[in-house]
């Protein structure tokens, strides 16, 4: 079932066209990745999908309803974790609920069962500055999830982490996704990460950026820990490198 449809999006800033005729779709429970080099317009695309930016033409449909330039419909996690330093983790995570008009007490109660699902037990009353990079990222993901169970847009969610933390976050993330089945569209410039996590990959390239190909990763989930060392994985990588 189609959750999200992005149809023929074009966007320019002044004279510079950034996106041209970008179309993609996301099905229920899918993990789809937009892969492309830095500066190709990935973040612009997400700003359009989230409703922050008005595209020059094209539209965005969520469950068939037009949400073009209407913020507040899909969860969006920006590149930095953006945890507010002056709020405890609990209150950071509860923020989307407060914005929807929920009372503080109720919001805290609603978020509390998810702390263990996201491996964040015991951090409720801590301030973000006391958490490690990986934990902060988990908290940011939980906040994204609290906003909406429909669709999450993740803009390079793991790019700020060191390699070791990143790979443990990948396996953690796959586990969590097994549990919460969130339809997710995420951006990365890391080919390995794209193959490891995604059901499908869209390649965004060129200037202005457009979708040049779509690759389906047929490896079943949950994927084994050493999938990224298998010949199949390398075949996908070779294929993508040739396309880029």
């Amino acid at each position: 079932m189609k959750k999200l449809e992005v149809k023929n999006i074009s966007k320019s800033f002044g004279d510079k066209q950034v996106l041209q005729d970008v179309s993609l779709e996301l099905n229920d429970g899918e993990l789809v990745c937009v892969l492309g080099v830095s500066g190709v317009g990935k973040s612009t695309l997400f700003n359009v999908i989230s409703g922050l930016l008005m595209p020059d033409c094209g539209n965005v449909l969520l469950n068939g309803t037009d949400i073009t330039n209407k913020p507040g419909n899909v969860s969006y996690m920006l590149q930095k974790d953006l945890l507010l330093p002056y709020r405890t983790i609990e209150d950071n995570v509860a923020l989307p609920l407060l914005i929807k008009g929920m009372k503080k007490k109720e919001a805290r109660k609603t978020v509390s069962p998810y702390f263990s699902v996201f491996g964040l037990q015991g951090t409720q009353k801590k301030y973000p500055s006391l958490l490690s990079g990986g934990m902060r990222q988990r908290a940011a993901l939980l906040r994204t999830y609290m906003f909406s169970r429909e669709i999450a847009l993740l803009d390079e969610p793991f790019s700020a982490l060191d390699t070791l933390t990143k790979s443990s976050m990948h396996s953690w993330y796959l586990d969590v996704m097994e549990e919460i089945k969130l339809s997710t569209l995420f951006i990365t410039h890391d080919i390995d990460e794209a193959i490891l996590l995604s059901d499908r990959i869209y390649l965004l390239s060129g200037s202005p950026g457009s979708i040049t190909s779509e690759i389906i990763i047929e490896e079943p989930k949950p994927r084994s820990k050493d999938f990224n060392l298998s010949p199949k994985f390398l075949d996908y990588k070779r294929k993508i490198l040739a396309l880029l």
Partner: peptide, 28 residues
Amino acid sequence: QKDAVDLLRSMGATRVQIFRYIKFPSAL
């Protein structure tokens, strides 16, 4: 941070909410 404001906007926050949750506390 502009990004933090964008994040709240993406959640559909009103101007008053952006002021309350981002602008005022960052000015403290």
